[in-house]
Design a protein around this nucleic acid. Structure first.
Lengths: 112, 112
DNA sequence: CGCACCTGCTAGCTTTTGTTTGCACGTGCT
DNA sequence: AGCACGTGCAAACAAAAGCTAGCAGGTGCG
């Protein structure tokens, strides 16, 4: 996953998703090991409900992915893992992505 | 400017700052040419007041910098330009930055 | 002086985002 | 059955972010 692959909207979504301490910690935690919701919530010290909300956002942005697995003792658990991504953010990259975002009135030439 | 230079807080601030369509466009516009507030506002098609708010945030995050210059005809103008930055965002980089952010309860080992 | 530029600020409103609380359903073990 | 563990969802409230409108200041020129 490269920044070049993202449309302005996509980049915006990724940025907005990562711009949150909880979600940053979630990514950090999952970078070390895949984990299931309840355990991850305990490990991060936040409520399960809250974690779920953040996981949904992360998944929507394509930063993590989930797999449902049945443990030995029959419990259905949802394992999350990080998507290996690499965002190279520079002013130029942003300028490129911004073009697929929505015209900033596009009068550059005429603006004196 | 590298991601390694940033503390968790700093990274968070940069992400939060970039996670906005207007500010993304501002960075994109300034990547092409330095500009002063009023002209930039016209070029982007937004109000000056709104642009100022966003510029303040961008400046606070260290993504742009301002210089006051007096034009030939005596008007004091504030020119903005982008800070050349390069943020390499990967799960690992985030994991590192997250450590300087605030402990996620730190019981990793004991969490079964 | 009046108009066209430039700059700056902020109170107050709207919109979005984050968080809690409470409920639902499932399995296995005692 | 009761308890401990897993899952899911959503209403309702709290907090943060975004935006507008309106005010202030300055210069130069006809």
């Amino acid at each position: 996953m490269d920044v070049g692959d993202l449309t302005g909207q996509g980049l915006l979504q990724v940025l907005a998703t990562l711009a949150n301490p909880h979600r940053l910690r979630v990514v950090a935690a999952l970078a070390g090991e895949r984990n299931y919701v309840s355990r991850l919530a305990r490990s991060l010290g936040i409520s399960r409900a809250l974690l779920q909300v953040h996981l949904r956002k992360l998944e929507a942005a394509g930063l993590v992915s989930a797999t449902i697995e049945v443990s030995e003792d029959g419990k259905a658990m949802k394992f999350y893992e990080v998507t290996p991504f690499a965002l190279h953010l520079t002013p130029e990259a942003i300028a490129t992505a911004a073009r697929t975002l929505g015209p900033d009135s596009e009068l550059e030439a005429g603006a004196r």
